[in-house]
Design a protein around this nucleic acid. Structure first.
Lengths: 122, 122
DNA sequence: CCGTATCCCCTGAGATACTG
DNA sequence: CAGTATCTCAGGGGATACGG
């Protein structure tokens, strides 16, 4: 691995920074959904994410917007219409999300076989 | 992006799973340090991570061990000697950590220039 | 040297109700 | 439709002290 010089403390660690942006119960799921389906309205998202509350959805969207990962577009009309989409900048996260998806899927299998081995060991 | 089928809820999302393993205040920093410097003793780690408490260090190490990311080797001797190292399996995380490091470093710059632009806008 | 055991605090997140 | 406003609770993480 190249040079991770003196990032020996969380406050200096760029990995921790990147992580911070993805962390949040619904953030990965929201990002994957927007990447896959493109622009979505607020209620469209809400319906696609069973179990999320309005508060949480607003909250997670705001935090992602704050980091310029997603864009919020408000149409001045009644009834209100608000659209959310991934920014160009936000798409730079896609390779990372993809890698984590693959790794996570594999890890699920890893843990499963581990449990099986432990079970047959007795 | 390929197929992220019905992972429309956090409990099914593999990205969330992968994230869960990296999340923890000192985990990224510990992993980077072990990847860079190889096997380390407990106190060696503690000294390298200014500000971490014994409790936290033990805690984070245990959680990583639980996922087979790191290995804990206890030598039966007094005074005690315990060594920690990344497992082969654990090194599969390195590309992800590297990608996050690069992305995070760039994001720091992104936010900085953003602030500068906002400042000169007035 | 390498840890546990406590106590305490703060924030992320759920439930619920209200509004332009 | 697309949000705020409260209230509440669990658990991640700090400080500190003790133990094999």
């Amino acid at each position: 691995m190249s040079d991770y010089n003196e990032e020996i403390v969380p406050e200096m660690c760029k990995v921790t920074d990147a992580l911070g942006i993805l962390v949040g119960k619904w953030k990965p799921v929201i990002l994957l959904h927007l990447l896959k389906n493109g622009t979505q309205r607020f209620n469209e998202l809400k319906r696609s994410l069973p179990g999320i509350t309005q508060k949480m959805l607003t909250n997670q969207l705001r935090e992602l917007e704050e980091e310029d990962i997603i864009e919020r577009k408000v149409y001045a009309q009644v009834p209100p219409k608000v659209e959310y989409s991934i920014t160009d900048y936000g798409t730079s996260l896609e390779p990372i999300l993809h890698a984590m998806h693959v790794w996570g899927a594999n890890h699920t299998i890893h843990k499963q076989t581990k449990r099986n081995n432990q079970a047959e060991a007795k």
